[in-house]
Simulated scan of single mutants.
Amino acid sequence: MGFFSFLGRVLFASIFILSAWQMYNDFGVDGGPAAKELDPKLVVVNRFLASKLGEGSANLDVKHVVAASLVLKGAGGLIFVFGSPFGAYLLMFYLLYITPVLFDFYNYKFGEPQFFTLLQDFLQNVALFGALLYFLGMKGSISRRKLKKKAPKSKAA
């Protein structure tokens, strides 16, 4: 059972690790293709933050967001492979902040083709988030079960 658990974590984390590796190779001076895709969506987020927090508030730079994504995906995936809950938390944080920004299906009308593509990717990330929640729940229940087991009593001679 231990080998299959490890294999499952490797296969699950490979999504994040390989994506981070490709992001790293394409990063360059301007942040690469990820920055080009994220830039218009980050403008909307910056506008929203400015309307809620004021004009001088947080101004998110696209290169910093891409670099943070790269670190969270890479480090979280590698740590997750070894069964650490911290790696799962890093991946969950990445999914939590990038999913609604990157896959903004709610900005499109129902019949548009972009709506369905973005909705599918959004739901896929929600499913990945759910799998990480499941991992953390199982990790917690296994450690609680081990604590509840009583030590075997030694037999008197």
Rank of each mutant, 00 (worst) to 15 (best):
M1W: 13
M1V: 06
G2Y: 13
F3P: 02
F6I: 06
F6L: 15
L7V: 11
R9Q: 03
L11T: 10
L11N: 02
L11H: 07
S14D: 07
I15D: 08
S19M: 12
A20K: 01
W21H: 08
M23H: 10
D26K: 01
F27V: 00
F27H: 02
F27I: 03
F27C: 07
G28Y: 09
G32F: 06
G32T: 02
A34S: 11
A35I: 05
K36C: 10
K36F: 15
K36W: 13
K36G: 14
E37F: 13
E37D: 14
D39M: 14
D39Q: 12
P40S: 15
P40D: 00
K41E: 06
L42Q: 03
V43G: 09
N46T: 07
N46W: 00
R47W: 10
R47K: 15
F48C: 05
K52P: 04
L53V: 13
L53E: 04
G54Q: 04
E55C: 10
E55L: 13
S57L: 10
S57H: 11
H64T: 15
H64W: 15
H64D: 12
H64G: 14
A68N: 01
S69I: 03
S69Q: 03
L70V: 01
V71M: 08
G74Q: 00
A75G: 09
A75R: 08
G76F: 02
G76E: 03
I79Q: 00
F80H: 01
F80K: 05
G83I: 04
G83E: 05
G83D: 07
G83F: 03
S84G: 09
S84C: 10
S84Y: 12
S84T: 07
F86T: 08
G87E: 05
G87W: 00
A88Y: 10
Y89F: 15
L90T: 01
L91G: 04
L91D: 03
M92W: 01
F93L: 15
Y94T: 04
L95H: 03
L95P: 03
L96I: 14
Y97W: 07
I98T: 10
T99L: 08
T99M: 01
T99I: 06
V101N: 06
N107S: 12
Y108D: 04
K109Y: 11
G111F: 14
Q114R: 12
F115E: 03
F115Y: 12
F115D: 04
F116M: 11
F116H: 13
L119K: 02
L119I: 12
Q120G: 11
Q120E: 09
D121V: 12
L123M: 14
N125W: 02
L128Q: 00
G130R: 11
G130A: 08
